[in-house]
């Protein structure tokens, strides 16, 4: 068994070993906790010039990553929270995303920016934001969101060796996810969604941590005679439209799951796109389950109904298929409070 966090660490390790132009830096990268275990021992192995801690200067360090890339390196910059990286929007949007475009294709910027997002455990309004749609809205940025531990390394390797800036978003609740899949160093191409479950009742399109909740829901419903297609996007930009369209043409029903806010988000875009391209295949209006249009509070009393969980997904699929379903198997299987990913998580962050 290997964890998602191990897989990220092994991906960095492999990239550093394979290519001397790879650099890894970020606040806390060489510290004793190693960014939730994802950067442990890398500085010892590759030295302080290739793996290093950094000043609390998110914007400049992003620009420095761009400059190092122009100088022939492939930097991987890590932010412990996406919220901190908002300070770097100028460099990301005005420089990284546009360098190749605004200089007429003269030079690509191969940088990877890891950002950790999440929910629960009192992370509150400024430590929990899932702003993937911000980045996906910007032409020139790729946005990758792994869900399965078995995808983490392959997607990270593709991101690091992609010639473009890639925003690599890791959900905090996934770091302890386990995989028994064979250990491979094969990169997973960006823009290829993964059809995790097959069925003809509803097309469920999901991303990042929502895929874990969706797997529970879809598997429980299968036992109740409702089989769904479950598509894990893996990357938001580029996005695998053909796979989504093909499934919707089969099922006629679309449910989109996103970890971000509802309005103007990834789910909205997918619903709009499918409405444009598959309108006549749809037998129901497209549906979405997302975070609501208000920030996450800190108190567990205020987050109880904030998160989308497997039972909500199952219930919505039941509505869409006009079938009586039971969410009891999901509720009975849950062994942890609503604000943690499992009993293994005891904080502090």
């Amino acid at each position: 068994m290997r964890s998602f966090a191990n897989e990220i660490r092994d991906g960095l390790d492999q990239a550093l070993a394979e290519d001397p132009s790879v650099l890894v830096f970020g606040l806390g990268v060489p510290d004793p906790k190693g960014v939730f275990g994802t950067t442990l021992d890398l500085q010892e192995k590759y030295g302080e010039k290739r793996v290093f801690d950094m000043p609390t200067s998110e914007n400049a360090m992003t620009g420095i990553a761009i400059g190092a890339a122009l100088g022939g390196f492939k930097p991987v910059l890590t932010h412990q929270r996406l919220d901190f990286a908002l300070l770097s929007m100028d460099q990301l949007v005005n420089n990284a995303a546009k360098w190749h475009f605004m200089f007429g294709g003269k030079r690509s910027v191969p940088i990877t920016i890891r950002m950790i997002l999440g929910r629960g455990w009192g992370q509150g309004p400024t430590h929990s934001q899932n702003l993937q749609s911000w980045f996906a809205h910007i032409p020139g940025l790729k946005v990758v969101m792994p869900a399965l531990a078995s995808d983490a390394k392959g997607l990270l390797l593709s991101s690091i060796f992609d010639p473009n800036p890639v925003i690599f978003l890791e959900h905090r609740w996934l770091h302890n996810a386990q995989t028994e899949a064979a250990d491979t160093n094969r990169p997973i191409p960006l823009g290829e969604a993964n059809l995790l479950r097959e069925g003809d009742a509803v097309t469920v399109v999901s991303v990042s941590y929502m895929t874990i909740e969706a797997l529970h829901a879809v598997d429980v419903l299968k036992e109740q005679g409702i089989s769904c297609d479950l598509i894990d996007l893996r990357s938001i930009s580029p996005i695998d439209w053909p796979k989504i369209e093909k499934s919707v043409k089969k099922t006629g029903k679309l449910l989109v799951l996103d970890t971000g806010f509802k309005s103007f988000g990834i789910a909205a875009e997918i619903m709009a796109h499918i409405t444009e391209t598959c309108f006549r295949d749809l037998t129901l209006p497209p549906a979405r389950l997302t975070a609501p249009d208000y920030s996450e509070s800190t108190s567990p009393a205020l987050t109880k109904d904030y998160h989308i969980r497997a039972e909500h997904i199952a219930a919505r699929i039941g509505e869409m298929t006009e079938r009586e379903i039971s969410t009891e198997p999901i509720l009975n299987a849950r062994n942890a409070a609503h604000d943690v990913p499992g009993n293994w998580f005891t904080g502090p962050f």
């Binding site: 420095i64 400059g67 122009l70 100088g71 420089n95």
Partner: peptide, 25 residues
């Protein structure tokens, strides 16, 4: 001449990053 851009201050860290690459080399 690695590039000029239109945001005031925007290329300063890019220049420092180029400096990092030169230090490495």
């Amino acid at each position: 001449f690695m590039g000029s851009t239109a945001i005031v201050g925007g290329t300063v860290p890019v220049g420092v990053g180029l400096g990092y690459s030169l230090m490495m080399k």
